[in-house]
């Protein structure tokens, strides 16, 4: 059985330095895996959370726990304020090539459901392209749309609509566990 050193990040370090997703070994427990390939295998720092993902991706103190990118009405450009966030995810995915992400595009409730599905797809696709430009491999990313079907905010006003014009990044670990 082969032991792989798993990159780990202490949450304190993360909080102090949120733009540095590259991990250091903080002496956290190391998970032993059997049958792993020679590629980089991820992350167990302080254990996995319920989704089976490294804490680094789910700890609220980690920038990588921020998974939502918001869009303007009828727009699908990734706004400048999200460039750092996208870069952080790109860096994580480039370093951890066994991880995959599903980008789910969403829209507000107004208009045709099928047209909104395509609009949500365009938003997800914009995030996917941003990640790809930063070096993430195509086979690590799938962009899909939920259209208006899964509103985060069920309200019917401008506040709710703004919250629902969104793309979310969901992670899946190499062992298949994760958020999708």
């Amino acid at each position: 059985m082969k032991k792989l050193l798993i990159p780990a990040l202490l949450s304190a370090l993360l909080a102090a330095c949120s733009t540095t997703p590259l991990p250091e070994d903080g002496g956290a427990p190391v998970e032993s895996r059997s049958g792993a390939s020679t590629g980089v295998t991820p992350v167990t720092a302080g254990g996995l959370d319920a989704s089976g993902l490294p804490r680094e991706l789910t700890d609220p103190k980690s920038k990588l726990s921020q998974r939502s990118i918001y869009f303007d009405l009828d727009k699908y450009e990734v706004k400048d304020e999200y460039k750092d966030l996208v870069a952080a995810h790109a860096k994580y995915l480039s370093t951890n090539k066994g991880f995959k992400v599903l980008i789910q595009g969403n829209t507000d409730e107004r208009g045709s459901r099928e047209y909104n599905l395509s609009l949500g797809q365009k938003r997800a696709e914009a995030v996917k392209r941003s990640l790809a430009l930063l070096g993430v491999k195509d086979d690590q990313i799938e962009s899909v749309s939920l259209g208006e079907e899964k509103p985060k905010n069920p309200g019917h006003d401008e506040t709710a609509w703004a919250e629902n014009r969104r793309a979310d990044i969901l992670y899946k670990a190499p062992d298949g566990r994760g958020e999708f």
Partner: peptide, 9 residues
Amino acid sequence: YVSFEKKKP
């Protein structure tokens, strides 16, 4: 029809 049961359409 379109079903989202696989977390995507």
